[in-house]
Design a protein around this nucleic acid. Structure first.
Length: 486
RNA sequence: GGCGCGGUACCCAAGUGGUAAGGGAGAGGUCUGCAAAACCUUUAUGCGCCGGUUCGAUCCCGGCCCGCGCCUCCA
């Protein structure tokens, strides 16, 4: 079975076949950098992180482009947040863009989201945007009015093919007041003339101004991936008008089909309602990370499919925390078991390594079905239960090969593809030779001596004391293990 | 109003024309000095409601109710 991807363009799942064998070019709409990222952004970028990771897992050479929007959403309605913010803080808007961009990457790094191969800034691609606009003017798909340039939607017959809207519906349904400047209300801006108070402005053939809402993505995606490329992704809320307009201007300019597959992630809701900056019901990642390990947030997100909405609540994320701890515990325990038995040279005879293949196939099958991470996670939890019960069974200890095979599989799936484990989770509590390890070995030795003499109050004092400083002790049958409390 | 999506147990959430994954929470048990961890058993005759197609529907079709998204910057 091969990878199947839901393509918004066709509204169905399609077999994934890249344009050039073995290579995948993917462009994802990045953040508009005017305020800190929230859980909704995390869902989007974690989703595409999984897609990129999985494509690489399958052996594709992936080129991942994700832009930074630092200009272009600057409207002349006086309500623009970035300009407003820059006025309040008395700083240049580019300083805000820079600060928020850093903050964004900080958050994404914490979530284990791999950096895109290229993070192009819109403001750094003004020339490319102007080139597209010139081309559209030349071809008669755009017109200039008073220093601004608009795309003439009626010249592009395929307008609406992504969002499933027709021009007639748009005209009837439009809630935008007719701008006298535009020929038709459905037309959109490619270039806007800068009013005197507008700080971010560039020279253009049409005078000083700034690029419109949608050109940046056309310019940057085509610059780095070519005029026709494999995947364009983004949030569902960008489907219309942003992506629809991108298609129109790109295809009109080049005469070629734009992206082959359109992938849209669904939204995070709070009490069933969209979490968004404008509704004000958002939780910033920085705040959330004060209370929860970022990987818990990542795990929480991956427990629902990227095309489903995900309802955010403390209870839901709390249960993810416990759930992830269970997975981590098992992976850690497995590693400890391997190290313990290595030192004791006492591996068993029970061979379960063949089962790895079964679990691996189930995992791949889940991911092949439009990156079904929740299903893949369910496979991992089945394995967790199996591994734990095998480890619990003293009558049939596993062979070294079995243990190593499971360990390896956990790492390539849960860490490599899903990114919900980090290296420290593997750290054996007894084999890395650091000072704390040596100290803990000694503490455990002393405490076990106390336990041998049934000095319970003393041994409990040690355990409680360690707990207070964030270290948990677990008394197993053969040994006592310690771990940092998550 | 137009277009689109969704309603699965206490919560989150997969899924299939043949009788409901997984996680959390709850209950009982095993293990254990205690704790923790883990394991076992258990918790939806039921998948918004009503019809239809079918040997059989939660999954297909039609109608209805409810919620949400987009149509305006938003991941």
């Amino acid at each position: 079975m091969s990878l199947v991807v839901y393509n918004t363009l066709s509204r169905k799942k399609e077999e994934f076949k890249p344009i050039h064998e073995g290579l995948v070019g993917i462009y994802v709409c990045g953040p508009t950098v005017y305020s800190d990222a929230h859980v909704g952004h995390a869902k989007s970028y974690v989703s595409f992180d999984i897609i990129v990771r999985y494509l690489r897992f399958l052996g594709y050479k992936v080129l991942y482009i994700q832009n930074i929007t630092d200009v272009g959403h600057l409207l002349d309605d006086g309500e623009d947040r970035m300009l407003k913010q820059s006025r309040i803080e008395k700083t240049h808007p580019m300083q805000i863009a820079e600060t928020i961009t850093r903050s964004y990457f900080e958050d994404m790094d914490a979530l284990g989201v791999g950096r895109p191969d290229i993070s192009p800034r819109a403001s750094g691609h003004i020339i490319e945007q102007i080139e597209i606009i010139k081309e559209l003017l030349k071809k008669g798909n755009a017109y200039e009015v008073n220093g601004s340039v608009y795309f003439d939607v009626r010249t592009f017959k395929d307008y609406g093919k992504l969002s499933g809207r027709t021009l007639d519906e748009l005209i009837e349904g439009t809630r935008v007041e007719v701008r006298s400047e535009k020929r038709n209300p459905e037309d959109f801006a490619l270039w806007k003339k800068a009013e005197p108070e507008h700080i971010m402005r560039w020279q253009s053939p049409w005078g000083e101004g700034f690029p419109g809402w949608h050109v940046e993505c056309s310019a940057m995606s085509m610059k780095y991936l070519g005029e026709h490329f494999d995947i364009h992704g983004g949030g569902l809320d960008n489907q219309f008008p942003h992506h629809e307009c991108e298609i129109a201007q790109s295809e009109a300019a080049t005469g070629k089909p734009f992206a082959k597959y359109w992938i849209h992630n669904n939204l995070v809701t709070v009490n069933g309602q969209k979490m968004s900056k404008s509704l004000g019901n958002f939780v910033t990642l920085k705040d959330l990370f004060k209370k929860y390990d970022p990987l818990v947030v990542r795990f929480f997100i991956l427990q629902s499919q990227y095309r489903s909405t995900l309802d955010f609540s403390e209870q839901a994320i709390e249960s993810s925390r416990t759930g992830l701890a269970k997975l981590r515990n098992t992976v850690r325990r497995l590693r400890q078991e391997i190290d313990f038995r290595k030192r004791a040279s006492s591996f068993g005879k029970s061979d379960k390594s063949g089962d790895v293949k079964k679990f691996r196939e189930a995992f791949v099958e889940a991911m092949n079905d439009d990156f079904n991470a929740p299903k893949a996670i369910a496979v991992l939890f089945d394995l967790v239960t199996n591994v734990n019960s095998w480890l619990d069974d003293p009558s049939a200890p596993l062979t070294e090969a079995s243990l190593e095979a499971f360990d390896k599989f956990f790492w390539e799936s849960a860490s490599g593809v899903l990114g919900i484990l980090r290296k420290e989770d593997a750290a054996s509590s007894s084999a890395d030779g650091t000072t704390i390890t040596s100290v803990m070995d000694l503490v455990i030795k002393i405490r076990n001596e106390a336990r041998k003499q049934k000095l319970w109050s003393m041994s409990d004092m040690v355990r409680d004391g360690l707990k207070a400083i964030g270290i948990a002790l677990e008394d197993k049958k053969e040994e006592t293990v310690w771990k940092k409390i998550d």
